[in-house]
């Protein structure tokens, strides 16, 4: 068994569990969103069903962001939790059962890529629906205006995929940090990244300008995902099992 073969075996197992969680989350969130939308219609809640009529005089429902947004958000959150829980719960038992760190890191990264693709496939389906009804529906999770097509939402879809991927890899990395070193290392890394660094960048104008330029670059989430994946690999490389 080579590292790649072992990584494939591990990935299959992780993927089965991860996709199962996403499917169950989608099912529950869709039921909740549909129920909420039905109540909103019945009660004529202005925040959800605020548009009076369409050309035919029927009620035009502005709940696309509710009925699609809730399941999309739920699946994205579930994917993030799965990316953390997978590393946190299974890394040590798998290493103790004979998995290598390289194979496991590869499997983790392939797993979060799959989760990001699955969430993006759902988003693409939503985009396709919204595009099909563009002009007839009010509100769009992709910000489609009446007359817009699927292609108009693709840049947001790609950005969403790369952002989700970066977020999921970051989740795996944080979990790996806490597994490899004492808790204060992970807390310190998070504090520096989320608090100290933004304060420093905001305080130094050249740094702030550079950060703004990076943020404006459309591929920065993708580049961030690659850097985070490299960091995850490095953290996993000599992971001990206490």
């Amino acid at each position: 068994m080579t590292t790649v073969t072992q990584a494939r075996v591990l990935f299959r197992w992780l993927a089965r569990g991860g996709l199962r969680v996403l499917a169950i989350t989608l099912l529950i969130a869709t039921v909740v969103a549909a129920a909420l939308a039905a109540v909103a219609l019945w009660q004529d809640w202005p925040e959800v069903a605020h548009a009076p009529t369409d050309a035919d005089g029927t009620v035009v429902i502005g709940f696309t962001t509710t009925i699609f947004g809730i399941p999309l958000a739920a699946v994205a959150i579930a994917a993030f939790v799965v990316s953390i829980a997978t590393v946190g719960s299974f890394t040590r038992p798998l290493l103790a059962t004979g998995a290598t760190r390289s194979a496991l890191a590869l499997a983790h990264l392939a797993h979060v890529l799959l989760l990001a693709l699955a969430a993006s496939a759902l988003a693409a389906a939503v985009l396709a629906l919204e595009a099909a009804f563009a002009g007839g529906w009010i509100g769009s999770t992709f910000g489609l205006a009446p007359g817009d097509t699927f292609a108009d939402g693709v840049p947001a879809l790609v950005q969403g995929f790369l952002g989700a991927l970066a977020g999921l890899v970051a989740g795996s990395l944080v979990a790996a940090l806490f597994l490899r070193w004492p808790w204060w290392v992970g807390v310190g890394a998070l504090a520096v990244t989320l608090w100290v660094l933004p304060v420093v960048v905001a305080s130094v104008p050249p740094l702030e300008a550079a950060a703004s330029a990076v943020a404006a670059w459309p591929w920065s989430p993708g580049a961030g995902a690659v850097l985070l994946a490299a960091a995850h690999w490095l953290v996993m490389r000599r992971m001990p099992v206490p």
Binding site: T2, T3, S89, R92, P93, A96, T97, G98, T100
Partner: peptide
């Protein structure tokens, strides 16, 4: 170390660890 051909031939069991406790 990091050789799946070798690690798959070794099994260490201890009174703690090596299992998924909450599954």
């Amino acid at each position: 170390w990091e050789d799946p051909e070798v690690t798959s031939r070794i099994c260490l069991v201890r009174d703690k660890g090596g299992v998924v406790e909450d599954e």
